[in-house]
């Protein structure tokens, strides 16, 4: 199993991507896609030095939908800030201490922060234990940090078991 499929989720993703690109499903295309989905991870596996395994796929799907809803809400927030008549926003640079470890979980968390309400990940601290976040309009930064921790980081911790 591990010899033939070093990265099962990458293989699945490649197969789905291939079928989407072709926009039709015929047996020939599925077979060709399956061959590619096995061959590409085998060929590129040597270069992957960041092992990451999703331990709980269903939690990951739940996380995806939570993220989708949050992106919608974040856009309404941003729209309200942009269309506010006054220009008085309260931006802040915040340090966000990380609990999770590993390159892939931190990358996912950073992308999540960038896509959700009023925050953008700008930088990671040199020792890799904290993220620097720019928040567009924040009153209480402790509350923001706590909400990110509880809403996203806990879930990611469960998904990646790290």
């Amino acid at each position: 199993m591990n010899k033939i499929l070093p990265a099962p989720f990458l293989s699945l993703f490649l197969l789905v991507f291939w079928l989407l690109l072709q926009n039709t499903i015929t047996p020939g295309l599925v077979v060709l896609g399956a061959i590619l989905a096995v061959a590409i991870p085998l060929y590129t596996n040597r270069g992957r030095d960041f092992p990451a395994t999703i331990r709980k796929p269903f939690k990951a799907i739940e996380y995806f939908f939570l993220l989708l809803v949050d992106i919608l809400i974040s856009n309404l927030n941003i729209a309200a800030i942009i269309l506010m008549p006054s220009r008085r926003i309260k931006p802040a640079l915040i340090e966000y201490p990380l609990d999770i470890v590993g390159e892939v979980p931190i990358t996912v968390l950073a992308s999540t922060i960038s896509l959700t309400p009023g925050t953008i990940t700008a930088e990671i601290r040199r020792d890799g234990r904290a993220l620097m976040i720019h928040a567009l309009n924040v009153d209480d930064h402790e509350k923001l940090i706590a909400s990110i921790k509880q809403r996203y980081e806990m879930r990611l911790k469960e998904i990646f078991k790290c």
């Binding site: 926003i89 931006p91 640079l93 915040i94 950073a110 992308s111 953008i120 990940t121 620097m132 720019h134």
Partner: peptide
């Protein structure tokens, strides 16, 4: 989108662009 935002934020910090005065630095 997050990747290009991250890179541009890095570039903006690197060049030390002016920020509005009420930006609080809580690092």
């Amino acid at each position: 989108a997050p990747i290009s935002a991250h890179l541009l934020a890095k570039a903006g910090l690197h060049l030390e662009l002016k920020r509005v005065e009420n930006t609080r630095d809580l690092r």
